[in-house]
Simulated scan of single mutants.
Amino acid sequence: MSRSPTLGPNAYLIGVPGGRHTLDTPALLLDRTALTRNIAKMAAIAERHGIGLRPHVKSHKSVRIAQMQIEAGALGVSCATLGEAEAMVEAGIPGVLVTSPVVSTNKLRRLVALADKAGPHQLTVVVDDPRNVAELALHAARLADPLDVIIDYHAGYHRTGVIDEAAALTLASAIAETGMLTLRGVQAYGGHLQHIEARAQREDAAAQLRESVASLVDKLKSAGLPIDIVTGVGTGTHEADASAGVFTEMQPGSYVFMDVEYHHVLAGGESGAPFDTSLFVQSTVVSTQAPEWVTLDAGTKSFAADSVAPVVARGVQGPSRYAFFGDEHGKLVVDSAHRPSLGAHVEFVTPHCDPTVNLYDRYHVVDGDTLVDIWPIEARGRL
């Protein structure tokens, strides 16, 4: 059977038993069973606690995975960039929230055009500045219905978001005055809390944020403002936040994959990490000349290099340690008794899944030892 060239050099292996182990590498692997299980688990958590689920696309950037999340019960998706939102709306994904302010004339034009394409109440964007509100309203005047917006709150991180309750009230007034924008609620995403490794410290920090958010929401509601949506919550704080009654919806992203960082963070639960590793990078041993290590074909162009190192998942027995060895190469230090041979395939758990995914054009979807499909990463590189 012929395959589309967009599927890459491994397309001929789709459906071939054992094809997982003969891929051209570096290759981004996605375990379909683990992915499906993770999506179902988070959907069940949201349903059990009566909280909405709007998972973040920034982790996977994939239309196919977004569709799976919607089919499992998600009310929409969250997008960190306008480009991600465009990819989702173009594919018919409903309930898209752009979680970062959209600024500059051309991007505002794109945003309004996207809102028109998505339809009423299917695209929402956060705002944190009256100047941005005024510009957005001018562009939104072409829409048949007002554009939905959410006030972004700094959540203690101060990356974006209004700085306090007074600023939120001022912004809400500016939104109301436009006549072209409809205030729907508040966003408070504590990104800086998600990777606090000590469970008690992470939960305490999340509780402090919830207290701050609850106060903000009470203040806005007391002013007669319609706050129907309180959105935030990531993979690292989902357990405590889902049941607390402050947020109306969650935005976790990395739970679909898990990575080295999140395994460290979530391993402190009663039964270990609640989600399975579904994402791997497969590499090949390309040199065995050094006595203390082997050289792999996966370096800084294959793994995110902003955090910890990748960890071996398959292909090596015994202790091992990965180190970056250049753009195209990695060093795997192993003992002589477990030294992989030239041409051997070694799979790794990704150090940080989001930026690792952004290095690849496609997922190689596997079921056991078989490559069952190849999915494009449609939102990769879209600003």
Rank of each mutant, 00 (worst) to 15 (best):
L7C: 08
G8L: 07
Y12I: 08
L13S: 05
G18Y: 15
G18E: 08
A27I: 07
L30K: 05
L30H: 09
A40W: 02
I51M: 01
P55R: 12
K58Q: 09
S59P: 08
I65T: 00
L75T: 09
C79K: 10
L82N: 14
E86M: 15
S100H: 06
S104L: 08
K107A: 05
K107V: 11
R110L: 14
L114Q: 12
L114N: 12
A118D: 12
A118Y: 10
D128L: 04
D128K: 08
N132L: 03
V133G: 12
E135K: 13
L138M: 04
H139K: 02
A140F: 07
D145Q: 15
D148T: 12
V149W: 01
V149T: 13
I151L: 12
A168V: 11
A176S: 10
E177W: 05
T178P: 05
G179W: 10
L183F: 02
R184K: 15
Q194T: 06
H195C: 05
Q201L: 13
A207M: 14
V213R: 08
V213Q: 02
S215E: 09
K219W: 08
K221Q: 14
V230K: 01
G232F: 06
D241K: 12
T248Y: 04
G253Q: 02
D259Y: 00
V260P: 13
A273D: 03
V281D: 06
V281L: 02
V281A: 04
Q289R: 11
A290T: 10
E292A: 15
D297S: 15
A298W: 07
F303W: 09
S307Y: 03
S320H: 13
Y322R: 03
A323L: 15
A323H: 14
A323G: 10
G326H: 07
D327Q: 08
D327Y: 14
H329L: 13
L332W: 03
V334I: 01
A337Y: 10
A344Y: 04
T350L: 00
P355W: 01
T356C: 03
N358T: 03
L359N: 09
Y360F: 14
R362A: 09
Y363R: 01
Y363F: 15
V365T: 06
G368Q: 14
D373K: 02
E378G: 05
G381L: 04
R382C: 09
L383V: 13
